[in-house]
C-alpha cells in the first residue's frame, strides 16, 4: 500500500448520548489498520470523549474509554484537542485519558488544511 493519504477525523459529539463517538473510533481503527496517516481532532463536545474516568455500568452500555489507549498501537498518535472547547467545559489536558496535543482553533484549522481527507463525526 504505497498510496498513503492524510486522514483527519473531526469529533464534535459527546460520547454515549449518540453513536457518533464510537463509530468514529471504529472507523479510525479500520483506517489505521490500512496504514494510512490518521489524525483525530477533538473540539466542542467532542473533547468529552477523552474525559478520564468513564464508568458505564450504571447505564448498561459498553464503555470505550479504554479503547483510546489502543490508538498508540495503531500508530494513531496525532490527537489534537481544542483549547477553547476544554475551557468552556472546565477541563484541562490533565483530564484527558490519553496524551494529546492541546492547541488553539487557529492551529487546528491549519492542521485541517494539511489533510487529503477530512471526515466529520
Amino acid at each position: 500500500m504505497s498510496d498513503i493519504k492524510k486522514f483527519m477525523f473531526v469529533n464534535r459529539k459527546a460520547p454515549y448520548g449518540t453513536i457518533y463517538a464510537l463509530e468514529s473510533l471504529e472507523v479510525v481503527l479500520i483506517a489505521a489498520a490500512f496504514e494510512q496517516d490518521v489524525s483525530m481532532a477533538f473540539l466542542d463536545d467532542g473533547v468529552y470523549q477523552l474525559k478520564k474516568g468513564h464508568a458505564t455500568k450504571g447505564i448498561e452500555v459498553k464503555g470505550f474509554e479504554k479503547t483510546y489507549g489502543a490508538l498508540e498501537d495503531y500508530d494513531v498518535t496525532k490527537l489534537y484537542v481544542d483549547q477553547e472547547s476544554l475551557d468552556a467545559r472546565g477541563l484541562t489536558a490533565d483530564d484527558m485519558c490519553v496524551p494529546v496535543e492541546v492547541m488553539s482553533r487557529a492551529e487546528l484549522g491549519k492542521k485541517m488544511d494539511e489533510q487529503d481527507v477530512v471526515l466529520s463525526f
Partner: peptide
C-alpha cells in the same frame, strides 16, 4: 481486557 477491542493483525503482530 485492557483495550476492549480485538486488535487488527498488524497491531497484534507488533504487540
Amino acid at each position: 481486557n485492557e483495550f476492549q477491542i480485538a486488535p487488527a493483525v498488524r497491531v497484534l503482530t507488533k504487540a
